[in-house]
Amino acid sequence: MIRLLRMLGSNKAAFFGMVLLAVAVLLNNRLAVAPVWLLVAPLAFLGLSLLAAMVSYPRIHRQAGLLVFHLALLGLIALAAVGRMTHMQGHFEVAEGQPFDPGLLEGVKKGPWHADPMASVVFVQGSVAVEYEPGIKRGKTFSKVYVASESGASIEETVGDDLPLVLDGYRIYSTFRKGFAPVLTWTPDAGPARTGTVHMPSYPLFLYQQENSWLPPGGSTPIQLSLDLHTAMDDKSAWTLKSDAAHAKLLIALEDRSIHLQEGQSVDLEDGMLRYERLVMWKGYNVIYDPTIFWMFMMALLGVAGLAWHMWTKLGLQHREVPARDGRRRASASMLETASV
């Protein structure tokens, strides 16, 4: 058993494990859909190898810095595993004035230990503003959201390009996805009226494709909607994308005719009445949940500190005199005296 542990914990085994990991990483990058075990297997092998080294090679305990570094690597592997089991990621779009609903989530991926993604998250989307520089180059994004404080009062927060909204451990990030959405009220021939939004394609990415189809609640035929949109967009100078600085006519394409609606106007259709209330913006977000992030950061820093400590103590950073070939003495580092790194 000891012999097996020594084999598994040897430098040769670690070297072999690292070669396996390098091959796995390259394959992972090449394959369109890489199996999970491709990276897990070599990492698990390296983890076991390190554990075996600590049990069977007492020498490693005498090199505290190196030990801390390797333990930190082991910790990172363990935290990454916990993170995979508990994580959740997805994306959603929400319009100005709309409360967040977990039903908006799309593309959800989660670990087996994560239940009910974002069930406890409550916020209301506020106004969105995106600055643009000349040449339609995207600048800063300011997306206001309203969250409830502990006392129940509403607090305004701003989600920026690298400033996420963090609620109950969920980190909600702004993305480049944003666009316009007409707010529509549909009053069916029988039943209560319902108000909602139809999200048009991302703007200004799909500047000339501001159209979408929409199936009225209870209706049978999708209706083709498009926007005759006017914004502050300017190729030559700086401008801001926001709903306050935009207006649009809503174009409704029916089989036999097309209808133009201004904000506040309505039209009778086959199954009910459609009213175009106003134009708002929708904002796209990515969301992730990973409770290990902070600890991974701390563990990584600890590992580097261990490595630096090892280098300081083993290699020495102070200057000293070492002989040169011609017999002259030249200042150099005591690194020269280290038998091996």
């Binding site: 280098m311 070492v322 002989p323 070939r325 030249r330 690194m335 020269l336 280290t338 038998a339 790194v341």
Partner: peptide, 17 residues
Amino acid sequence: TMSDDGDLDRLAWGFMM
């Protein structure tokens, strides 16, 4: 005039570290 190869190699790997 520089140190021998072994010394230079160790110095190089000090920088690599």
